[in-house]
Nucleic acid binder design. Structure first.
Lengths: 251, 251
DNA sequence: CTTACACCTTTACGTTACGTTAATGTCAAG
DNA sequence: CTTGACATTAACGTAACGTAAAGGTGTAAG
């Protein structure tokens, strides 16, 4: 019953991997067979199985095989330190996922109209014509878009031009023509406030919370970020900071 | 100032990627230049930039470029649906990371001796000799291991054999020789209780909370899982369930 | 003995999203 | 004219296998 040896398929099945994996581990000197018989067959044993499952354990933790080999082969390896380092990288990953999920949620929310902030403002604060075709193509199947289109259409062409120009001026002021300005500067904050009023006047009613979300999305969505960044590199991030500051100080 | 066209380096810099990326996107028909001049230079324009940043937006969300192409090219694409699906996958990833972090923490805890549960029990509940060389190689630099080694060495060889045999018997009973048994069955629970006492008697003192953690680790670490699973497929998971049930009902 | 079938072997290309040379051409400035 | 910054294509490398392709081996059944 003991001194049992296994074929490649047997340990592969026991460990829940394919034979390809086992051969690959052989190839990269991660797990060598205990013997190669005359016919070329690889032979493994109990200790191979343990080692293999040890490998699987670390692989499950997303450690690259290279690192695993170090762990397996070097007796003086500082296990705790390695695991702690790996823990850190896992946490970084997690934080990133957290961020992505938030951005994603905001995007979805804005698309489905939750928080009664349509993609109206989202799409029409800038030059309308430039985005129209694309916007229709991509968001045309949401009812909010149709609705906002109608509202916008209710303005006369002259009005539309005026509104757009006004918006663009405010945006320029927000981004801050002089590169030395800080998001907290009085004139920047003044412009942010006016832009907030502007959106409220000509578009949807929105409160500070939604305003803040909007700003986050301007940065998150590159089509808008590009508009800000074209005015000044880092413009989008700057605007977000300015809006955040504004919202924090106007509760 | 308008009708501006960009070179490959310019848009690459504006989008924060390398020119290689831009060429690659050209190659896979994700983002084609608006024109290729006589000298072979690629030419891009404003809309290219927007499209590129749109791509970056989705890439940031970890969508494969293949999917991004679908999104970009197909006007009738159901955005919300796609994003929701992607959200799900991100959440799955997050849950997995959560699990990994917990396992990792437990492993680290056990190694550093937090919760005063040394890797003693962890390594010596089974056949000691089989693991010794490996265990020393991998955990030899932790003070707890040395300590537990000394304790174990204080037993006479006969005692050691008896203790091991006793443990193995209990393990066999826990895993449940008959496949029909459930983790909650009285005789299984009886064996779990005896094993708990056994560990307390011959090894470290441990409470139910630590006992539960130990069980989790038996499953998480394949070297132990293998021991249970060798007795019966799914044995490790079975033991964990049994121990969890035991701990839940013995507060 | 043959046949079937499951298993074993090596070789080698495909995958993803680029990074990294290598070898060469182009353009504007000094 | 040279220099330096830019452009081009071609091609190999990455991580961890999946997936044939082409062929050898072992065993059980007919």
């Amino acid at each position: 019953m003991s001194d049992s040896t296994y074929t490649i398929k047997q340990i592969a099945d026991m460990a829940g991997v394919t034979t390809r994996t086992i051969r690959y581990y052989d190839q990269i000197d991660l797990l060598k067979p205990v013997e190669i018989r005359a016919n070329g067959y690889r032979t493994y044993d109990q200790s191979s199985l343990l080692k293999l499952q040890q490998i699987m354990f670390f692989r499950e933790l997303d450690l690259p095989l290279e690192d695993i080999r170090s762990i397996i082969n070097r007796p003086d390896f500082d296990m705790v330190d390695a695991l702690n380092k790996h823990r850190l990288s896992l946490q970084t990953q997690q934080n990133r996922l957290q961020r992505l999920l938030r951005t994603l949620d905001q995007t979805i929310d804005s698309l489905t109209g939750t928080g009664r902030m349509g993609e109206k403002d989202y799409f029409e604060g800038f030059d309308h014509s430039e985005y129209e075709e694309e916007a229709r193509a991509r968001w045309g199947n949401t009812s909010q878009y149709v609705e906002s289109q109608q509202k916008w259409a209710s303005y006369s062409p002259q009005q539309q031009e005026d509104i757009k120009a006004q918006g663009n001026q405010l945006i320029s002021r927000m981004v801050g023509a002089d590169a030395g300005a800080a998001p907290e500067d009085a004139d920047i904050q003044q412009a942010v406030g006016e832009y907030f009023d502007y959106l409220n006047r000509y578009f949807y009613t929105l409160d500070l919370k939604i305003f803040r979300n909007l700003a986050d999305m301007w940065v998150a969505d590159p089509r808008f970020a590009a508009n800000y960044d074209r005015i000044r590199p880092g413009g989008a991030a700057f605007v977000r900071e300015a809006v955040h500051y504004y919202c924090n100080h106007h509760t």
